[in-house]
Design a protein around this nucleic acid. Structure first.
Lengths: 182, 182
DNA sequence: ACCTGAACACCGTTCAAGT
DNA sequence: ACCTGAACACCGTTCAAGT
């Protein structure tokens, strides 16, 4: 006797993503997600063995979304590295509760780590073009560390000493791109 | 009728810090901290209005510790900026569960934000000496964003594409110091 | 196959009561 | 002044029972 699925895998992830974006990861209880899609908490365990796996799916969906934003930015006229960095930051600033999860250390084992790497792949190509193949990986790590660090600190409220944060971002971006090109 | 304090403020923070270092912030329950100092969970509410305030004290203690490490590194022979960056990373790598809390966004209001700023202050002085007063703040934000970002990504397991992470750190450090000096 | 209610262990937090 | 036991609301998770 097959039973009606009262909700879909997609609806669950969408609801979970919305909760994290609006209220942060702490608010992501199994109850909250379940009731957002019209079922009860325990029913979610038919789809996810535990809460962490549901959170993994939220991160996966967010990475997918971000990847598309980066791909679009890359195609615009102008330097793609600048465009991608700005798109990356814009994505994070619009989702301040979600972004910190994307690169946080959590339980591992799965494809998440690989997906994160794929996200950075296009950046790496452009950086190799600037700094040369020999230092492409070092250069990419310099660039992505700065980008992720800047955004993390900005979201964490670490830039409190005055001055324009916008200008500091552009300063760093110019400095790094110019410095890697030689 | 004054009563014996069965534990001290210092013992509580020390126990809490140890739990976070060993098992991570998730394991920091009021019960766990209380029983580590020989009292019961509810008694902790005489000292902290809630768990977040206890966690604030853990972060405060860690920042103090890190600040001392940075001050020591600064006095060593050789370039102080290199020494401080390496000491910063070494501190984080020894306490992978603790470090992510130090600059994470949490409930605000208190002196924590100011303490974080103080931590970066000595870096700022040296960077002003390299890049000039006009761009000291931008330069400091470039440098600290890279440093924090690199460590966060390293702890998060983001550097999975092979190559030496050690070498990538030194590459970034050389690149930034050399780039800021001109 | 999917969903539910009931149950368990564990939290953070409050509070009246003890010393 | 500090500590405790009991209680409350809330969680993640399991499981037998329903359709």
């Amino acid at each position: 006797m097959p039973a009606l699925a009262r909700t879909s895998a997609e609806a669950v992830v969408t609801a979970a993503l919305a909760i994290v974006e609006r209220e942060g990861a702490d608010a992501l209880s199994m109850q909250a997600v379940a009731s957002a899609v019209g079922i009860k908490g325990p029913s979610l365990y038919k789809r996810y063995a535990d809460r962490e796996l549901l959170l993994d799916d939220v991160v996966r969906a967010a990475l997918q979304d971000l990847e598309e934003k980066l791909a679009a930015a890359r195609k615009k006229p102008g330097d793609p590295l600048h465009a991608m960095a700005r798109a990356f930051r814009a994505y994070a600033l619009k989702r301040p509760r979600l972004y910190p999860l994307l690169f946080a250390a959590r339980r591992e084992g799965g494809d998440l780590q690989a997906r994160r790497a794929e996200l950075v792949q296009p950046l790496l190509g452009h950086i190799a073009g600037l700094v040369g193949e020999a230092h492409a990986l070092d250069g990419a790590r310099l660039f992505t560390a700065w980008l992720h660090g800047f955004i993390s600190m900005e979201l964490g409220g670490a830039f409190q000493m005055g001055g324009s944060v916008e200008q500091a971002f552009e300063f760093g971006l110019e400095h790094l791109v110019a410095g890697l090109r030689r």
